[in-house]
């Protein structure tokens, strides 16, 4: 992946596949470190699946259900001397408090650091693809904060779908202006 924002788009897709109603995307950034945390309230994974998603070669099954998304994201973090952690609570064992948290830490000054890239485009794409899912996005850069909460938008929109073109444009412009104001 050329941008970490593309990894985020890819990982968040797993959350919607896991029937998440709410996906939280948190980026925390200072001069040295970038942390990306994606958490959801989807059905979660059991211990075996959890192992197989972090290491694509863990399983010998030929009908592998998981893809290369997490390994690629992990590699992007590890090649900067950072790391990726993933934890999950499966709905069968945790009926009321289930979901998955993927957290990756990057050393920004490492030569192999992949830039974050067009995160605004990633958010617009996620909302366009899954307008029924809610997203909470926060990006902390030093003391600055950029944020978007589709639950607040939904309250205003009163039934107008989030993937309405004018609404997607609003998301893009709102976030772009927040980044410019930093």
């Amino acid at each position: 992946m050329k941008e970490l924002s593309l990894n985020i788009l890819d990982i968040a897709e797993n959350s919607t596949k896991a029937k998440a109603e709410l996906i939280n995307i948190e980026i925390i950034e200072n001069s040295d470190t970038l942390i990306i945390k994606i958490s959801d309230n989807g059905i979660g994974m059991n211990a075996e699946t959890l192992l197989s998603v972090t290491d694509p070669f863990y399983t010998t099954r030929t009908t592998r259900k998981v893809g290369m998304g997490i390994p690629l994201f992990r590699f992007a973090a590890e090649q900067t001397g950072g790391n990726l952690t993933i934890s999950s609570r499966h709905i069968d064992e945790h009926p009321t408090n289930h979901g998955t948290i993927v957290s990756a830490t990057f050393n920004k000054n490492h030569i192999d650091f992949t830039p974050l890239g067009d995160i605004v485009s990633t958010l617009v794409t996620m909302i366009q693809g899954h307008p029924m899912t809610d997203y909470v996005f926060t990006h902390r850069i030093g003391d600055g904060l950029i944020s978007l909460d589709t639950r607040e938008m939904r309250a205003v929109l009163d039934g107008l779908p989030l993937d309405t073109y004018e609404v997607l444009c609003w998301v893009k412009e709102n976030l772009t202006e927040q980044y410019k104001a930093l």
């Binding site: 938008m153 205003v156 929109l157 009163d158 107008l160 309405t164 609404v167 609003w170």
Partner: peptide, 10 residues
């Protein structure tokens, strides 16, 4: 681009 503007879109 405030929530008020979103209201206008709605």
């Amino acid at each position: 681009k405030s929530l008020a503007e979103l209201q206008a879109i709605k």
